[in-house]
């Protein structure tokens, strides 16, 4: 009888020990969120650009710009600045919502011409986009 009682007590002790170990092995972890976004320009290719609305066949400068917009850039905002190389802006143009394909942009002033050389810089949604032409 004494042996059976001792065996029962030992079994209960083992069970209790196992339970405490199992409880210690679990941990309540609160759910969390992690969201990552990788923002990029709508295009990494150079945009084809041509000077338009020439004054005196271009001798007196230009008053517009024509760009070919890739489909990924449709619906975004475009800004064009004609400027002296490394210098101040001469004329600006903007399109609030770009269509796909060819788009004509009217500039705020005449730029370029036979006596002055002006560079053109373009951004789409604020991202700098290289141009050709």
């Amino acid at each position: 009888m004494r042996l059976r009682a001792l065996a029962a007590v030992a079994a209960v002790c083992l069970l209790a020990g196992g339970l405490s170990t199992a409880q210690a092995a679990s941990l309540a972890v609160a759910p969390s969120t992690l969201t990552t976004v990788n923002g990029q320009a709508c295009t990494t290719s150079s945009l084809a650009l041509t000077r338009t609305d020439a004054v005196w066949w271009g001798l007196g400068g230009f008053r517009g710009v024509r760009l070919t917009v890739p489909p990924a850039c449709a619906g975004r905002a475009l800004h064009v600045t004609a400027h002296q190389t490394g210098g101040s802006a001469v004329a600006t143009g903007a399109v609030a919502t770009l269509p796909t394909g060819s788009v004509d942009v009217a500039m705020s002033a005449t730029y370029g011409g036979i006596f002055t050389s002006h560079a053109l810089s373009v951004t789409i949604d604020g991202w700098y986009v290289a141009t050709t032409g």
Binding site: V29, P31, T33, T81, W127
Partner: peptide, 24 residues
């Protein structure tokens, strides 16, 4: 102690549009 939890994203559906504020 060890536990498990699902790490989710608060942004579902429409992706975030990232643009830059640029000035000349």
């Amino acid at each position: 102690a060890a536990g498990t939890s699902v790490v989710g994203s608060c942004q579902t559906g429409t992706p975030v549009r990232v643009s830059l504020v640029s000035t000349f």
